[in-house]
Design a protein around this nucleic acid. Structure first.
Lengths: 330, 330
DNA sequence: GTCAGGTGTCGAAGCGCTTCGAAATCATTT
DNA sequence: AAATGATTTCGAAGCGCTTCGACACCTGAC
C-alpha cells in the first residue's frame, strides 16, 4: 500500500499536478467543475499532502514551536489550559505544535528555527532577563512571548496585566472598607528568579493600597501546608488588625483557607480573601478572584503569531484583569 | 542572510554534497581528514539540515506525535512529568515531539500519520474501548500506548501494573494487622468512562483483601474538599472498625487527610493511609505510597517506540509497582 | 473575421536532502 | 608491471510538493 501522492490524485482526476495543488491551496482560480473533480479524487484516494515536501517547496512548515517551562514549581493547571488552547487555536489556523521544554535552552530554539522545522515560536513563562530573548531578536522566525522580559522593545509579548490585577484586588478590598490588608505572594524563589509577574502584582497591590492610604504588606509564600500555616500565623501576629488578604499563589490558596480556619478566623466574616488564580480553583472554593486567563492567553498568542507569519506587524498585548466577586469577600 | 544549505558546506569544505551527507549520517565510512574538514565547515557556517528536505528524502521525519488527553479531570502533575520525560527521551534519540490533544480524535492521528509528519505515535491515557485503537492497528506508523485497551493483542502498551499496585496496598495493610480496610478511588466518571486503571486497581485491591480474608470495601471519590469529607465520614459511619485506607486519587489525597483530622482520627495512630499517587505528593505529605512512575513511563514508551521505528519487535510492558513506606502507616 | 484581454490549465524548474551505483584512488599481491 | 580488491569519494536521480511563466481557449469589441 504505497502512500498516495499528488501525482496519483492528478492522474485520477485527469488534470495536471499543478492544478491539484492550486485547488488545494486556492492560490489560483480553478473552474468549479475541475475543482470538484479534484476534490472527489482527493477524497476517494484518501490523499494527504506530504508535510515534508510541502515544507520544502513552500518554505512553510505549518508548525509552530511551543516552548514550555516544564520545571517544577509551575502552575500546572494554567500551563495545561494554555497548552490546550494553543494547540486548538493553532489547528484552526491549520498549524501543528511542536513541544519543547525550556531546558533545551537557546540551542534548542536555534535548532528548530534553523532547520525550518517550525515557522514561529511561542515561549511561555519568559523571565525578566531571559537568555533566550537576545536570540529571538535576531532570529528570522517570528516569535511571541508569554510574559514580559526587561526590555520588550521590538518583541511581541502577551500577558495578564498583573500590575492592574494586584491593584484591582487592593481596590476591591479598599472599597469594602478594609483598612489593613496583605498580599501572600509566590514562593521566595520566584521573586529571586525575577519572573516579573510576581513582582508586578506586588507593585500594583502596594501602589494602589498606598494611594488609598491603606496599611498594606506583601510577603512571599511557600506551598506546603505547614509553611503556609506558619506564614499566615506570623502575618496575623504581626498585624492583628488585618482583615483583607490577597493570595497570589495557586498552590497555596487552599492551604491559606485551611490555616485561617485553624486560626479560628472565618471567611469572609473576619477576613476577606481575594485570590489571583485560575478560574476553576476559585470557582471550586467560591473565592472572589482575578482569574488567570490561560485560555485567552493561548488564543491571543497564537493569533499574534499567525499575524506575524503573514507579515503583519503585531504589538504586545496586556490582558485586562477581570475580578469576579464570589463568597470570600465582604 | 540566506540560510546555509548542504551545498554551501560542501563547497566550503571542497567535497561533494553526498560526502557531507555521509559525514553527518555516518552511513558510509569517510576518512578522518575529510570528515574533520566537513565538520569544521559545518561549525563555521552554522549549518543546520533542513528538516523538510531531510524528511522528504529519507522518509523519516524524526518527529513523534504525543497525544495527550488535555481534558479536565486528568492528573496534571503526572501528565506533565510524563510529557517532560517523553520530550527529553525523544531528544536523546534525536527526535522531536509534536503535541496533539485527544480531542482531534482519530482524524488527527490519521492526518499526521498520512502526511508523514511523524514517524510514530505515543498515546496517553488510552481507554478500555478506545475508538482510536482500530485505527492504530492498520496504520503503517508504529505506536505505543500508555494504558491498556480491552484487546491489547498486537499493540505495544506501557502502564503501571495497577492490579498489583492495588494488591500490594492491601497486602501492606494486611501485614500490619489491619482487618478492615477501604479503597477511596477515582471520581465516579472515571469508572464510567472505563479508563481501566481505576478498575484494575480496585480489582487488585479487592482480590488481595479477599484472599487474606479482610473486610474490604471500595468506593469512588470526588475531588472537592466537601465531597471528600462527606465520603470519608460516610465510610467511617458505615464501617466503624475501619483502620486502613488506600487512596487512589491524587487530587483528593490532601482532602482525605484533612477530613480524617476533622473527624478526630489520627494518622497513623488510628488509621493507616496508603496512597497511589505521584511521588512528590506522597513525599510532601509523608505518605506511604505506591508511586505513579510517570517519568519512567515516558522513558519506556519512547524507548519502545524507537525500537519499533528500527523495525524491532516490541512487546508490552507492565511496570512493577513500588511501595515506599513512609509515616502514614503502622 | 480579427484582435485584445480574461480565464483556466499545464509543464517544468526547483526546494535541500539522501542514497545508489560507479568512478577514482590507494595499497597489495602475483 | 599488471591485476586485484578495499577504501574513499563523487554525480545524479529522485523524494512530493509549490510556483512561475506560458499556452490554449473563450468572450466580446471593433
Amino acid at each position: 500500500m504505497r502512500t498516495v501522492t499528488i501525482a496519483d490524485v492528478a492522474r485520477h482526476a485527469g488534470v495536471a499536478v499543478s492544478t491539484v495543488s492550486y485547488v488545494l491551496s486556492g492560490k489560483r482560480a480553478i473552474s468549479a467543475t475541475t475543482r470538484q473533480r479534484v476534490l472527489d479524487s482527493v477524497r476517494v484516494l484518501g490523499y494527504h499532502p506530504n508535510a515534508g515536501a510541502r515544507a520544502l517547496a513552500s518554505k512553510r512548515a505549518n508548525v509552530i514551536a511551543l516552548v514550555l517551562p516544564l520545571r517544577a514549581g509551575m502552575n500546572l493547571p494554567v500551563l495545561m489550559q494554555f497548552a490546550t488552547s494553543v494547540v486548538a487555536t493553532a489547528r484552526q489556523y491549520d498549524h501543528d505544535v511542536l513541544l519543547m521544554t525550556a531546558d533545551e535552552g537557546p540551542d534548542g530554539i536555534r535548532r528548530v528555527a534553523a532547520s525550518a522545522m517550525v515557522d514561529g515560536l511561542l515561549l511561555m513563562d519568559v523571565e525578566v532577563r531571559d537568555t533566550r530573548v537576545p536570540l529571538l531578536r535576531d532570529l528570522a522566525e517570528p516569535s511571541v512571548l508569554i510574559g514580559f522580559p526587561a526590555d520588550a522593545e521590538g518583541l511581541t509579548c502577551v500577558d495578564l496585566d498583573f500590575h492592574r490585577a494586584g491593584a484591582s484586588c487592593a481596590a476591591h478590598l479598599a472599597e469594602r472598607g478594609h483598612r489593613e490588608i496583605a498580599l501572600l505572594g509566590a514562593p521566595e524563589v520566584v521573586y529571586e528568579r525575577g519572573t516579573g509577574f510576581a513582582e508586578r502584582t506586588r507593585a500594583g497591590f502596594l501602589a494602589e493600597a498606598t494611594g488609598r492610604e491603606l496599611h498594606a504588606v506583601a510577603v512571599p509564600c511557600e506551598e506546603t501546608y505547614d509553611e503556609v500555616a506558619s506564614a499566615v500565623k506570623l502575618l496575623f501576629d504581626a498585624h492583628p488588625g488585618l482583615t483583607g488578604l490577597v493570595v497570589h499563589n495557586e498552590a497555596a490558596v487552599g492551604h491559606v483557607l485551611g490555616a485561617l480556619r485553624a486560626l479560628g478566623r472565618a471567611v469572609p466574616e473576619d477576613v476577606s480573601v481575594v485570590a489571583i488564580c485560575p478560574d476553576d480553583i476559585a470557582e471550586r472554593a467560591r473565592l472572589t478572584s482575578v482569574l488567570i486567563p490561560a485560555e485567552e492567553l493561548g488564543r491571543e498568542a497564537v493569533r499574534l503569531l499567525m499575524a506575524k507569519l503573514d507579515g503583519l506587524p503585531a504589538g504586545s498585548i496586556l490582558l485586562e484583569p477581570r475580578l469576579t466577586i464570589r463568597e470570600s469577600t465582604r
